[in-house]
Deep mutational scan, measured.
Amino acid sequence: AVSDRLIGRKGVVMEAISPQNSGLVKVDGETWRATSGTVLDVGEEVSVKAIEGVKLVVEKLE
């Protein structure tokens, strides 16, 4: 699937994400809805860990 190529890629949070609410991330110039187990603020760099349906699962870049 086209989304599989995104796993491991870096992105930037465009709309804040929390465990309760999905947000938006931009990866390779495309905007995706994303979820995370932690709070991520706009502008934070993330990496794509998995894909669930049409949402990316991301975590903060260390």
Rank of each mutant, 00 (worst) to 15 (best):
R9N: 05
S22Y: 15
E62A: 15
I7H: 03
E62D: 12
G11W: 01
K55P: 02
V25Y: 00
G43H: 08
E30Y: 12
E44I: 13
E52Q: 13
V39L: 13
G8R: 04
D41V: 11
G37M: 14
K26D: 07
T35H: 06
G37S: 09
V13T: 05
D28N: 09
V39E: 07
R9L: 15
S36Q: 01
L40P: 01
E44A: 12
V25C: 05
E59M: 15
A16W: 14
R5A: 15
G43D: 09
G53D: 08
R9I: 04
V54D: 14
S18H: 11
D4E: 13
E15G: 09
G8D: 03
K55S: 13
V25I: 06
E44F: 09
W32E: 01
S47V: 14
E45W: 14
N21F: 13
D28C: 07
M14W: 15
K55Y: 15
S22V: 11
V54P: 08
K55M: 12
L24Y: 12
L24K: 10
E45T: 14
V12E: 05
G8V: 02
L56I: 07
G11K: 00
V2F: 04
V25D: 00
G29A: 10
V13K: 00
E15M: 15
V58M: 03
A1C: 09
V39R: 11
E59F: 15
R9D: 03
V48D: 00
I7S: 03
V58I: 03
V58P: 00
P19N: 05
V46H: 01
K60I: 05
A1T: 12
I17K: 01
S18A: 11
E44N: 09
M14Q: 11
T31Y: 09
V57F: 13
D28R: 05
G43C: 06
D41R: 15
L40A: 04
E52S: 10
M14C: 05
G37R: 13
K49T: 11
S18T: 15
S36D: 01
S3N: 11
E59I: 12
G29T: 06
S3R: 05
L40R: 02
M14K: 07
G23T: 02
L24F: 11
L6N: 03
G29N: 08
L61R: 07
L61F: 11
S18V: 10
D41L: 14
G8F: 03
V13D: 00
I7K: 05
S18N: 12
K60G: 06
K26A: 12
A50I: 03
A1P: 11
A1Q: 12
M14A: 08
I17T: 04
E62K: 14
K10Y: 10
V12I: 10
L6H: 03
W32D: 00
T38D: 12
T38Y: 15
K10P: 10
L40E: 02
G37V: 14
E15I: 11
Q20N: 10
R33Q: 12
G8W: 03
R9Q: 11
V27L: 06
L56E: 01
R33Y: 13
V13G: 00
L61V: 12
S22D: 13
T35Q: 09
I17L: 05
S36T: 03
E30L: 10
M14V: 11
K60F: 04
I51L: 09
D41E: 12
A50E: 06
I17W: 02
K10G: 06
N21V: 14
E59P: 00
E62R: 14
E52D: 15
I51E: 02
G29L: 08
S47K: 12
G29F: 10
L40Q: 05
R33G: 05
M14H: 06
D41P: 10
K49W: 11
V2Q: 07
V2L: 13
L56P: 01
V39N: 10
L40H: 09
G23W: 04
